[in-house]
């Protein structure tokens, strides 16, 4: 670029810039294009034009529309919240009714259980008493039998003792009188 500029260059870029020229002979920028006075009017005109258009588009169409959308959404949310509140109250009522029904049913069930328990207890008591009586009767009978057996066993022991004593006395060479032996045995068995 620099070499070309010196070949074709009639004037230096600085003097061109001072003369108010913004572009060199190759279309490159001289200095800051932002400071080129030649282009400012154009930019200002188009800026004002586009800004005014944008302002009307926004203030007439876009902003009212978005505002309406947001307001509608707010309304919907408020309505939905109110509906939700209603439904919540209803749900609470339903739950209370349910809890009450549950409590009633529970109380009834308890009453039935208590009744059944009392009935069973009565039956049980009667059966126990009957069984006790039977057991007592059987026990008394058994005791009586045992006493009888003991009695006969004692007599048998006496008889065996008498016979044995008589035989022993006879074997010893003594003469045993039956009555004396019996008396002696009885005395022994008492002692």
């Amino acid at each position: 670029m620099a070499t070309e500029a010196t070949q074709t260059g009639h004037v230096s870029p600085v003097s061109l810039e001072e003369a108010g020229v913004c572009v060199d002979s190759h279309g490159g920028a001289i200095g800051m294009p932002q400071l080129c006075g030649e282009w400012m009017g154009n930019q200002i005109f188009w800026l004002l034009l586009t800004l005014v258009v944008l302002y009307f588009v926004l203030s007439r169409v876009a902003l009212p529309r978005i505002e309406a959308i947001l307001a509608e959404r707010q309304g919907t949310i408020t309505n939905d919240l109110a509906a939700a509140e209603d439904l919540k109250v209803k749900a609470e009522e339903a739950e209370q009714a349910y809890q009450k029904a549950l409590a009633d049913a529970r109380a009834e069930a308890q009453a039935i259980v208590a009744e059944a328990k009392a009935e069973i207890q009565a039956d049980l008591d009667a059966a126990t008493a009957k069984a006790d009586a039977q057991i007592a009767a059987k026990a008394a009978e058994g005791e009586k039998k045992i006493a009888e057996i003991r009695e006969t066993a004692l007599d048998n022991v006496k008889a065996v003792a008498k016979d044995t004593a008589k035989e022993i006395v006879a074997a010893m060479g003594g003469k045993a009188d039956a009555r004396t032996v019996t008396a002696a045995i009885n005395a022994r068995m008492k002692g």
């Binding site: 009017g41 154009n42 930019q43 188009w46 800026l47 586009t50 588009v57 926004l58 529309r65 978005i66």
Partner: peptide, 28 residues
């Protein structure tokens, strides 16, 4: 570049308005 010439700057200003319109008007 005259005052009313449609320049590259003008073009992108118009594009700016169109893009803004696309977002805020067509988008909604």
């Amino acid at each position: 570049v005259g005052t009313f010439t449609f320049t590259n700057s003008s073009f992108w200003m118009v594009m700016t308005v169109l893009a803004a319109t696309a977002l805020l008007v067509l988008g909604t």
